[in-house]
Amino acid sequence: MDTIEWIDATAMGDVPADDVIGILVAGRDIALYNAGGEIFATDNICTHGHARLCEGFLEGHEIECPLHQGRFDVRSGQPSCAPVTEALRSYPVRIEGGRVLLALD
Protein backbone atom coordinates (compact mmCIF):
# COMPACT_ATOMS: atom_id res chain seq x y z
CA MET A 1 0.00 0.00 0.00
CA ASP A 2 1.39 3.39 -1.01
CA THR A 3 1.47 6.10 1.61
CA ILE A 4 1.67 9.73 0.67
CA GLU A 5 4.40 11.79 2.29
CA TRP A 6 2.99 15.21 3.16
CA ILE A 7 5.56 17.99 3.55
CA ASP A 8 4.82 21.07 5.65
CA ALA A 9 5.25 23.97 3.24
CA THR A 10 4.06 27.08 5.10
CA ALA A 11 1.29 28.59 7.20
CA MET A 12 -2.08 29.10 5.49
CA GLY A 13 -1.86 32.77 6.51
CA ASP A 14 1.35 33.19 4.49
CA VAL A 15 -0.60 32.84 1.22
CA PRO A 16 -2.55 36.10 0.74
CA ALA A 17 -6.13 35.90 -0.49
CA ASP A 18 -6.43 35.85 -4.29
CA ASP A 19 -2.66 35.99 -4.72
CA VAL A 20 0.38 33.79 -5.36
CA ILE A 21 3.66 33.31 -3.50
CA GLY A 22 6.83 31.43 -4.37
CA ILE A 23 8.44 29.14 -1.81
CA LEU A 24 11.22 26.58 -1.72
CA VAL A 25 10.01 23.17 -0.51
CA ALA A 26 12.38 20.19 -0.39
CA GLY A 27 14.64 21.95 -2.91
CA ARG A 28 11.81 22.67 -5.36
CA ASP A 29 10.61 26.10 -6.47
CA ILE A 30 6.85 25.94 -5.83
CA ALA A 31 4.09 28.47 -6.50
CA LEU A 32 1.25 28.48 -3.96
CA TYR A 33 -2.01 30.10 -4.98
CA ASN A 34 -4.90 31.21 -2.78
CA ALA A 35 -7.79 31.26 -5.26
CA GLY A 36 -11.14 31.92 -3.64
CA GLY A 37 -9.94 30.60 -0.28
CA GLU A 38 -8.58 27.34 -1.72
CA ILE A 39 -4.84 26.64 -1.89
CA PHE A 40 -3.29 25.15 -5.03
CA ALA A 41 0.35 24.32 -5.81
CA THR A 42 2.33 24.03 -9.04
CA ASP A 43 5.91 24.32 -10.16
CA ASN A 44 6.88 27.99 -10.07
CA ILE A 45 8.75 28.10 -13.39
CA CYS A 46 6.73 28.65 -16.58
CA THR A 47 6.99 25.80 -19.10
CA HIS A 48 7.28 28.29 -21.98
CA GLY A 49 9.97 30.70 -20.79
CA HIS A 50 12.14 30.75 -17.70
CA ALA A 51 9.92 33.03 -15.61
CA ARG A 52 8.75 32.67 -12.01
CA LEU A 53 4.96 32.44 -11.91
CA CYS A 54 4.86 33.95 -8.41
CA GLU A 55 5.75 37.22 -10.16
CA GLY A 56 2.70 36.86 -12.42
CA PHE A 57 -0.91 37.91 -12.05
CA LEU A 58 -3.52 35.61 -10.48
CA GLU A 59 -7.06 36.12 -11.72
CA GLY A 60 -9.61 33.62 -10.47
CA HIS A 61 -8.08 30.20 -11.11
CA GLU A 62 -5.62 31.40 -13.76
CA ILE A 63 -2.03 32.53 -13.32
CA GLU A 64 -0.58 34.75 -16.04
CA CYS A 65 3.13 34.35 -16.70
CA PRO A 66 4.93 37.69 -16.28
CA LEU A 67 7.15 37.06 -19.32
CA HIS A 68 4.86 36.29 -22.28
CA GLN A 69 1.36 36.50 -20.73
CA GLY A 70 0.60 32.80 -21.20
CA ARG A 71 -1.91 31.46 -18.67
CA PHE A 72 -2.30 28.26 -16.67
CA ASP A 73 -5.20 26.88 -14.64
CA VAL A 74 -3.75 26.66 -11.12
CA ARG A 75 -6.10 23.77 -10.23
CA SER A 76 -4.60 21.42 -12.82
CA GLY A 77 -1.54 23.14 -14.28
CA GLN A 78 -3.11 22.97 -17.75
CA PRO A 79 -2.31 25.80 -20.18
CA SER A 80 -5.29 28.02 -20.97
CA CYS A 81 -3.93 30.38 -23.63
CA ALA A 82 -1.01 30.88 -26.00
CA PRO A 83 1.92 30.92 -26.06
CA VAL A 84 2.03 28.18 -23.40
CA THR A 85 1.29 24.65 -24.58
CA GLU A 86 2.94 22.42 -21.95
CA ALA A 87 1.23 21.88 -18.59
CA LEU A 88 2.80 22.80 -15.28
CA ARG A 89 3.31 20.06 -12.74
CA SER A 90 0.69 20.46 -10.03
CA TYR A 91 0.78 19.00 -6.53
CA PRO A 92 -1.86 17.75 -4.08
CA VAL A 93 -2.48 20.14 -1.19
CA ARG A 94 -3.89 19.45 2.26
CA ILE A 95 -4.59 21.96 5.04
CA GLU A 96 -4.05 20.76 8.60
CA GLY A 97 -4.00 22.92 11.71
CA GLY A 98 -3.58 26.08 9.64
CA ARG A 99 -0.56 24.62 7.80
CA VAL A 100 -0.28 24.00 4.05
CA LEU A 101 0.96 20.46 3.36
CA LEU A 102 2.14 19.31 -0.08
CA ALA A 103 2.62 15.88 -1.62
CA LEU A 104 5.58 16.37 -3.97
CA ASP A 105 5.99 12.81 -5.31
Results as ranks from 00 to 15, higher is better:
Arg94Met: 14
Ala82Glu: 12
Gly22Arg: 00
Val25Leu: 06
His48Arg: 10
Val20Arg: 01
Ala31Gln: 03
Asp18Cys: 13
Met1Gln: 12
Asn34Gln: 10
Asp29Gly: 02
Glu62Asn: 10
Gly60Pro: 09
Cys65Gly: 08
Leu53Lys: 00
Asp43Ala: 10
Ile30Asn: 00
Asp2Pro: 04
His48Gly: 06
Asn34Trp: 07
Pro79Val: 05
Cys81His: 12
Gly49Phe: 05
Arg28Gln: 15
Met12Leu: 15
His68Met: 10
Phe72Ala: 00
Leu67Tyr: 06
Cys54Glu: 01
His61Cys: 10
Arg89Trp: 06
Thr10Val: 15
Pro79Leu: 08
Asp19Glu: 15
His50Asn: 12
Ala82Leu: 13
Arg28Gly: 04
Pro66Cys: 04
Asp8Leu: 14
Gly97Val: 09
Thr47Glu: 09
Pro92Lys: 05
Glu38Pro: 02
Asp105Ile: 05
Leu58His: 07
Val84Cys: 14
Val15Asp: 00
Ile39Ser: 10
Ala26Gly: 06
Glu55Phe: 04
Asn34Thr: 12
Ile39Asp: 08
Phe72Ser: 01
Asp105Gln: 11
Ser80His: 06
Glu59Val: 14
Arg75His: 06
Glu38Phe: 07
Glu62Asp: 10
Ala11Asn: 14
Ala87Asp: 08
Ile95Leu: 14
Ile23Cys: 07
Ala87Pro: 11
Gly13Asp: 15
Tyr91Phe: 14
Gly22Gln: 03
Gly70Ala: 12
Glu38Val: 13
Ile39Val: 14
Leu104Cys: 08
Asp14Met: 12
Ala103Trp: 07
Glu55Thr: 04
Cys65Asn: 09
His68Pro: 06
Met12Asn: 07
Ala9Glu: 03
Gln78Val: 07
Gly77Gln: 08
Asp8Cys: 15
Gly36Ser: 13
Val25Pro: 01
Ala17Ile: 04
Ala17Lys: 11
Gly22Met: 03
Gly97Phe: 07
Tyr33Gly: 01
Val100Ile: 14
Asp105Ser: 09
Cys54Phe: 01
Asp14Pro: 06
Gly60Trp: 11
Arg75Gln: 11
Arg89Asp: 09
Ile23Asp: 02
